[in-house]
Structures are given as structure tokens and as C-alpha cells.
Lab assay of single mutants.
Amino acid sequence: MTVLPKDIPGDSLKVTVGTANGKPGDTVTVPVTFADVAKMKNVGTCNFYLGYDASLLEVVSVDAGPIVKNAAVNFSSSASNGTISFLFLDNTITDELITADGVFANIKFKLKSVTAKTTTPVTFKDGGAFGDGTMSKIASVTKTNGSVTIDP
């Protein structure tokens, strides 16, 4: 049996954390987006972790974005102690894959008090994996961190 590389060099799934701005007490939304989904033969499963400074940001909610089908079954998240974990699994293993680019999740943060303008990162942590529509590992994932700026 011969195994051929399935990824064209330079191609990767792009996962990007967005940015937001606000004043202390505001609730802002930071999107997590996927790009080049079709090039990577869709997404059938993924789990990953984001870190944030809990002294500056309070997670209000984490909701599935419009590219997630049947989110009540296929999407899960949790947030505590400065870490947000995400889990997606197409429970049907074929019919509810992520097949389009767009917003995977929206994180709502309540901004805490600061004395001066502060930009705090929302960054990928170690761990996690992504699988394509056949549940094979997506070897190349380009992750881009985001941030939230609090301006009193």
C-alpha cells in the first residue's frame, strides 16, 4: 500500500482569532474563523484551546458560528481559569461536516476595569488537533492569535 501526501505544500487550514475593542463593562464579541476549508477536504472534527487573561476578560458565552451545522449536538465549549476549550465533531461522520469558510465560534467577553488603554492577547495554547471530512488528521493548520483592547 502506498500512502501519498494529501496536502499540497503551502496549503493549510487557517484558524484565526479576531479582535475587538471596548470600554470597561462593555461586552464584545471576538470571532474565531476558519478559511481554506474546502482545500483541506472539509473539517469533520477539531479540538483546540485559547488562552486569555482572566483578570482583564470575563467569558460571558461561547457560541457556535454559522458554519457549524447542528451545533447543539456537534459543538461544545467550556471556559475557566483563562482557557477556553473548543470541540467539534460531526456526529453523523459525513452529513454535518464544516464545508465552508466563515465564523466557527463567537466568544463574548465582558471587559474588566483598567486604568490605561490595554491590549490583551487571545492566543492559541498547545494541544488539540483538526481532522478532515474523512477524519484524517489535517497536518497543516495555520493559527493566528487575536486580541481585545480595553480603553477606559
Rank of each mutant, 00 (worst) to 15 (best):
M1R: 14
M1V: 13
M1K: 14
T2K: 07
T2R: 08
V3A: 10
V3Q: 14
V3K: 08
L4P: 12
L4F: 13
P5Y: 11
K6V: 12
K6N: 12
K6G: 06
K6T: 10
K6A: 10
D7R: 14
D7G: 11
D7T: 12
D7S: 11
D7Q: 12
I8R: 09
I8T: 12
I8F: 13
P9Y: 08
P9T: 13
P9D: 14
G10R: 14
G10I: 12
D11Y: 12
D11A: 10
D11F: 13
S12D: 12
S12C: 14
L13S: 07
L13T: 09
K14S: 13
K14L: 09
V15P: 08
V15G: 09
V15H: 06
T16H: 10
T16L: 11
T16S: 12
T16F: 13
T16N: 09
V17I: 10
V17T: 14
V17E: 08
V17D: 05
G18T: 13
G18I: 12
G18N: 10
T19V: 13
A20K: 07
A20W: 06
N21Y: 11
N21P: 14
N21A: 14
N21G: 08
N21R: 12
G22R: 08
G22S: 13
K23N: 11
K23G: 09
K23P: 10
P24M: 06
P24H: 13
P24R: 10
G25D: 11
G25L: 10
G25K: 10
G25S: 09
G25N: 09
D26R: 12
D26C: 13
D26T: 12
V28W: 07
T29F: 10
P31G: 11
P31W: 12
V32Q: 11
V32N: 06
T33E: 10
T33L: 12
T33C: 09
F34P: 02
F34Y: 09
F34H: 06
A35H: 13
A35D: 06
A35P: 06
D36H: 11
D36L: 12
D36S: 11
D36F: 14
V37S: 12
V37A: 13
A38S: 12
A38T: 13
A38R: 13
K39P: 10
K39V: 09
K39Q: 09
K39H: 11
M40V: 08
M40S: 10
M40C: 14
M40P: 11
K41V: 11
K41G: 11
K41E: 08
K41T: 12
K41Q: 09
N42L: 08
V43S: 09
V43N: 00
V43F: 07
V43D: 04
G44N: 00
G44D: 03
C46P: 01
C46M: 14
C46A: 01
N47D: 03
N47Y: 01
N47W: 00
N47A: 01
N47T: 01
N47H: 02
N47G: 03
N47C: 03
F48D: 04
F48Y: 13
F48Q: 02
F48K: 04
Y49V: 03
Y49H: 03
Y49P: 00
G51Y: 11
G51N: 14
G51M: 12
Y52C: 10
Y52S: 14
Y52L: 11
D53K: 10
A54C: 08
A54R: 13
A54S: 11
S55Y: 12
S55P: 08
L56F: 09
L56E: 14
L57I: 12
L57M: 12
E58W: 08
E58I: 14
E58L: 10
V59I: 14
V59Y: 10
V59D: 07
V59A: 07
V60S: 11
S61T: 09
S61N: 09
S61H: 12
V62G: 09
D63Y: 07
A64R: 06
A64G: 12
G65M: 12
I67H: 14
I67G: 08
I67N: 09
V68P: 10
V68I: 11
V68L: 12
K69L: 08
N70M: 07
A72N: 15
A72I: 12
V73S: 05
V73Y: 05
V73A: 05
V73L: 07
V73K: 05
N74I: 01
F75T: 02
S76G: 14
S76L: 08
S77I: 14
S78A: 15
S78T: 06
A79F: 15
A79T: 15
A79Q: 14
A79C: 15
A79P: 05
S80K: 15
S80Y: 06
S80T: 12
N81F: 15
N81I: 15
G82I: 15
G82F: 15
T83Q: 03
T83N: 15
T83F: 15
T83D: 07
I84H: 00
I84R: 06
I84E: 14
I84K: 02
I84T: 05
S85R: 01
S85N: 02
S85Q: 00
F86G: 03
F86C: 03
F86S: 03
L87H: 04
L87K: 02
L87N: 01
L87P: 03
F88G: 01
F88S: 03
L89W: 03
L89G: 01
L89A: 00
L89K: 01
D90C: 00
D90Y: 06
D90M: 03
D90H: 02
N91I: 11
T92V: 03
T92N: 02
T92G: 03
T92A: 03
I93P: 02
I93D: 00
I93A: 01
I93L: 09
T94F: 15
T94W: 01
D95C: 02
D95A: 06
D95G: 03
D95E: 05
D95F: 01
D95R: 01
E96S: 03
E96F: 02
E96R: 00
L97K: 02
I98L: 05
I98T: 15
I98Y: 00
T99E: 11
T99S: 06
T99M: 12
A100H: 09
A100T: 08
G102L: 15
G102Y: 00
G102T: 03
V103Q: 05
V103R: 05
F104N: 01
F104V: 03
A105G: 07
A105V: 05
N106P: 01
I107H: 00
I107A: 02
I107R: 01
I107V: 07
K108L: 04
K108P: 02
K108Y: 05
K108E: 06
F109E: 00
F109V: 05
K110H: 03
K110G: 02
K110E: 04
K110D: 00
L111W: 09
L111F: 05
L111M: 06
L111S: 04
L111I: 06
L111N: 04
K112N: 03
K112R: 05
K112I: 04
S113E: 03
S113G: 08
V114A: 07
V114T: 07
V114D: 07
T115K: 07
T115M: 05
T115C: 03
A116L: 05
A116I: 06
K117S: 05
K117N: 06
K117C: 05
T118I: 05
T118D: 06
T119P: 08
T119G: 05
T119A: 13
T119N: 04
T119M: 12
T120Y: 04
T120E: 13
P121H: 08
V122W: 01
T123F: 12
T123E: 03
T123K: 14
F124L: 04
F124G: 01
F124N: 10
K125E: 04
K125Q: 02
D126T: 15
D126W: 15
D126Y: 15
D126M: 15
D126A: 15
G127K: 15
G127F: 00
G128K: 00
G128M: 00
G128R: 03
A129N: 00
A129V: 04
A129M: 00
A129H: 00
F130S: 02
F130I: 04
F130A: 03
G131E: 00
G131W: 03
G131R: 00
D132P: 03
D132T: 15
D132Y: 04
G133V: 03
G133I: 01
G133E: 04
T134M: 05
T134H: 05
M135H: 00
M135E: 02
M135I: 14
M135N: 01
S136I: 04
S136T: 03
S136L: 04
K137C: 01
K137D: 00
K137M: 00
I138H: 12
A139K: 14
A139S: 05
S140R: 13
S140M: 09
V141L: 06
V141W: 01
T142D: 02
K143M: 04
K143T: 02
K143V: 02
G146P: 00
G146K: 06
G146H: 05
G146W: 01
S147C: 05
S147L: 06
V148K: 00
T149V: 15
T149F: 15
I150R: 14
D151M: 15
D151E: 15
D151Q: 14
D151S: 15
D151R: 15
D151Y: 15
D151P: 15
P152I: 11
P152V: 14
P152G: 15
